[in-house]
C-alpha cells in the first residue's frame, strides 16, 4: 500500500486492520503522533487527512487511499508550535502534538477564532495536565 504523508509518498506493507497511527509510528517511525487511548476517545493521535483533523488510532491505514496525511512532523515550521511554547500550553507534552494538529486545522480555516470556536474545535483533545487555558491562549495569539 501507499501513504502520502507530509508530502512524501511511502510504500509500506501492513495487514488490513492496521491503523494509520500504527503505520505512522511503527512502519514510518513518525512517533510524534501519540497513542494514548487507542480507541478514538482522547485525540492524542490526531493527524490531518486532506486538512481535516481525524483520529489516526481508529482510521484504517488501508482506507486512507490517496488522501494527504499531515502529521506533527509535517508542521514543524508552523508558527502554532512556537505559540504553544510561548504560552506554556503544555505540561507533560504527551497530548500536545495532537493539540497542535487540531489547532493548526482550526486557524487554517479561521485565522482569528473566538474563544467559543476554540473550545468547540479543541474539545476532542483531552489534556490530563490541564493545560487548556494556555492552549486557548496559544491559539488566540498564534500569529504574534
Amino acid at each position: 500500500m501507499r501513504l502520502d504523508v507530509n508530502d512524501h509518498a511511502y510504500e509500506l506493507h501492513c495487514e488490513v486492520g492496521t491503523t494509520l497511527a500504527e503505520a505512522l509510528r511503527d512502519e514510518l517511525s513518525l512517533t510524534g503522533t501519540k497513542i494514548a487511548c487507542g480507541e478514538g476517545h482522547c485525540g492524542a493521535c490526531t493527524v490531518l487527512v486532506d486538512g481535516a483533523p481525524v483520529l489516526s488510532c481508529i482510521t484504517l491505514a488501508h482506507a486512507v487511499g490517496d488522501a494527504k496525511v499531515t502529521t506533527i512532523e509535517g508542521l514543524r515550521e508552523h508558527p502554532m508550535l512556537r505559540s504553544f511554547v510561548r504560552a506554556d500550553a503544555l505540561q507533560c507534552g504527551f497530548c500536545t502534538p495532537g493539540q497542535v494538529v487540531s489547532a493548526v486545522a482550526l486557524v487554517e480555516a479561521r485565522p482569528e477564532p473566538t474563544t467559543e470556536e476554540i473550545r468547540h474545535a479543541m474539545a476532542g483533545n483531552l489534556c490530563r495536565c490541564g493545560a487548556y487555558p494556555k492552549i486557548e491562549e496559544a491559539i488566540r495569539t498564534w500569529r504574534d
Binding site: 509510528r25 511503527d26 517511525s29 513518525l30 512517533t31 510524534g32 503522533t33 501519540k34 497513542i35 502529521t71 506533527i72 512532523e73 508542521l75 514543524r76 508550535l81 512556537r82 504553544f84 511554547v85 510561548r86 506554556d88 500550553a89 503544555l90 507533560c92 507534552g93 504527551f94 500536545t96 502534538p97 497542535v100
Partner: peptide, 21 residues
C-alpha cells in the same frame, strides 16, 4: 521562563518511553 524542552515535546521530537523502539 518558557519551558526548556517545550519545543521538543510540542513538536513530537521528544522520545517518551512509549516511543522507544
Amino acid at each position: 521562563a518558557e519551558r526548556l524542552d517545550g519545543f521538543e515535546r510540542a513538536s513530537g521530537q521528544a522520545v517518551y518511553t512509549a516511543d522507544l523502539d
